[in-house]
Design a protein around this nucleic acid. Structure first.
Length: 324
DNA sequence: GGACCATACCGCCATC
DNA sequence: AGGATGGCGGTATGGT
């Protein structure tokens, strides 16, 4: 961990108060309970003078975009209008920061700023489900993933709608400081340390809560028995549907396919076990329902870009520091 | 890393 | 007519 690690949030006219608040909460609060050097947080303003944020709040930042030049992490907490091209000073500042290796983060519609700067070309990204189509249409070179809470492309990270920004910020803390400290932060925020699944399930859940109830029970059942050898055939039977209808319903509700969902859950379970137990990779593979350790390693690397053992070394709850 | 086999996925169409 | 369902089969993906 670079010490101190400077995080800068960009404020602008029409600032999204909620998303901005998330960033302040996670990176900007003093954390005496954390015994290692914490982030140094700063807000910088795109426009001179106080800026109006949503809800009639006025924000007076201490400095201008200069702070971006020295930041290790830059966060764009939403953008006021998906159709408004962000000013060139901001785009240039982000491009320069990106070139020198800074980490660029967006929440919700903030992705449009990153996209306009060209930082997402050829990369995966996500945004609020309301904007996903527009993003994909306007920026065809971005691989838009509408059904996840956040996408970590290493140097560029994007998160889905509003509160998913919290998931991404916690993910960043977890990457920088390890699971134990991330859990402490989550605990103080009174949020779960790790939300699973994508935003699609929240979308349909809020649109028609009843329809999801049947499948939600099934998901819980699947989750409770990851070690079982679950075939799509068996799942469909359990849900009393044909395979075809089951697959359709599953995608509609969760935004992914049954098998992919299972694999993902298994990987998350494996992560938890790597963090909190000293089981061998073989044992973990068996426990989470991956047939063999080789299969686990394969998927683990594909998803998290490290091996299970390397992950354990980094995130085991004792040694919590690493260099970003 | 590639080859082989099994299964999962999804478009298409008929049916309820 | 129109929406949901289920079967079929070609292709993609996963597991060994």
């Amino acid at each position: 961990m670079l010490s101190p690690h400077r995080v800068v949030a960009v404020a602008y006219q029409g600032l999204c108060t909620f998303e901005f608040g998330i960033v302040v909460e996670v990176f900007g609060l003093p954390r005496p309970e954390v015994t290692v050097p914490w982030y140094r947080f700063k807000v910088c303003s795109l426009e001179a003078g106080p800026v109006r944020a949503t809800g009639g709040v006025t924000v007076q930042a201490v400095g201008g975009l200069n702070a971006v030049r020295r930041a290790h992490t830059i966060v764009i907490p939403g953008w006021r209008d998906a159709d408004e091209r962000p000013p060139d000073v901001l785009l240039d500042a982000l491009r320069r920061a990106h070139r020198r290796g800074a980490r660029i983060v967006s929440i919700c519609s903030g992705v449009f700023v990153l996209a306009a700067a060209g930082l997402l070309d050829g990369k995966r990204a996500t945004t609020h489900w309301r904007y996903a189509e527009r993003l994909a249409a306007r920026f065809p070179r971005i691989r838009v993933e509408p059904d996840v809470l956040y996408v970590d492309e290493g140097q560029v990270l994007t998160s889905a709608g509003s509160a998913a920004g919290m998931d991404l910020c916690l993910h960043i803390v977890r990457s920088d400081y390890g699971a134990e400290i991330a859990n402490q932060v989550a605990k103080r925020l009174v949020v779960p340390p790790h939300r699973e699944g994508g935003q699609a399930q929240y979308v349909s859940a809020s649109v028609h809560a009843d329809a999801t109830r049947g499948l939600a029970r099934l998901l819980e059942w699947m989750h409770g028995g990851l070690h079982r050898n679950l075939t799509v055939e068996a799942l469909a039977r359990h849900a009393r549907m044909s395979r075809r209808s089951f697959a359709r319903r599953f995608r509609a509700e969760t935004g992914t396919t049954p098998h992919r969902w299972l694999t993902h859950q298994r990987l998350l379970a494996a992560q938890r076990r790597l963090e909190s137990t000293d089981e061998s990779v073989d044992e973990i593979a068996e426990h989470v329902g991956m047939q063999t350790a080789a299969t686990l390693r394969h998927h683990f690397r594909a998803s998290f870009r490290t091996s299970p053992t390397a992950y354990r070394r980094r995130f085991t709850t004792r040694s919590t520091q690493r260099s970003p």
